[in-house]
Simulated assay, not measured.
Amino acid sequence: MAEPSTFTAPSVRLAVPDDGPALGELDRSTWSTLHAVQPRPQPPYAPFFDDRHRPEGILVAEDVNPVGETVLAGYVRVVPPTPLACNAHVRQIQGLAVAGWARGRGIGRSLIRTACAAARADGANRLTLRVLGHNAPARALYEAEGFTVEGVLRGEFFLGGRYVDDVLMGRPLSP
């Protein structure tokens, strides 16, 4: 396997409807109680895109996998948190996944940075998210990208036999 320094930055683009099957597979392959509050997906699998989860709310990262193919390596879902006009200045990350083979290559960071830029270009001045308290790698990445903890819902979820905090994070999108 090549050294990380030989990897190029991933390409990030807006999702298209044809990405649905690959995104569904990525979602299933990365499922973990570290970040998921829903049970593990079981067949028959629901489509990745539906009326509430549309391609225009998803940014995808493409990168070269270990066998040399350019494939989807990750995604981030960035959408308005509510349909309210008084909340139109905010966007929320409602999903982030990076393929196991692609971790440690800067894909999550590229997705977050592109999400910030896209939200800013869409008129937002604030980006928020929720992350499980025990997901230390995700929390460290978000903090490194300027997110701060704005609230904690203690013991909000019962996962794997224990109570887990729901951590609310946010950051301004000023230039």
Rank of each mutant, 00 (worst) to 15 (best):
P175F: 10
C86D: 12
S174A: 09
P43K: 06
R52I: 08
P39R: 01
G57V: 00
A61Y: 02
A61K: 01
F7R: 05
T70H: 11
V67S: 07
A144M: 03
P172N: 07
A88W: 13
A144C: 10
F158M: 07
Q94D: 14
V164G: 05
P83N: 07
A22F: 05
E56H: 12
H35K: 04
R103Q: 11
G146T: 00
A9D: 06
S174W: 04
L127F: 02
E150W: 07
L96A: 08
F147I: 10
N135L: 03
L23G: 11
Y142D: 13
A118E: 06
V131D: 03
P17M: 02
C116D: 15
A97N: 09
T8C: 03
D166N: 09
E56M: 11
N125R: 11
F48P: 05
P44T: 03
D165G: 03
A102M: 04
M1P: 13
A22W: 02
V152Y: 00
P172C: 05
Y45N: 06
R162Y: 01
R91T: 13
N65V: 05
G170S: 08
S110A: 14
R113K: 09
H35R: 09
L129Y: 04
A99H: 06
R120S: 14
L96M: 11
T8Q: 04
V152F: 00
V12K: 00
H89P: 14
A9F: 13
V71W: 02
V131S: 05
R113Y: 05
P43I: 02
G161K: 00
G155I: 07
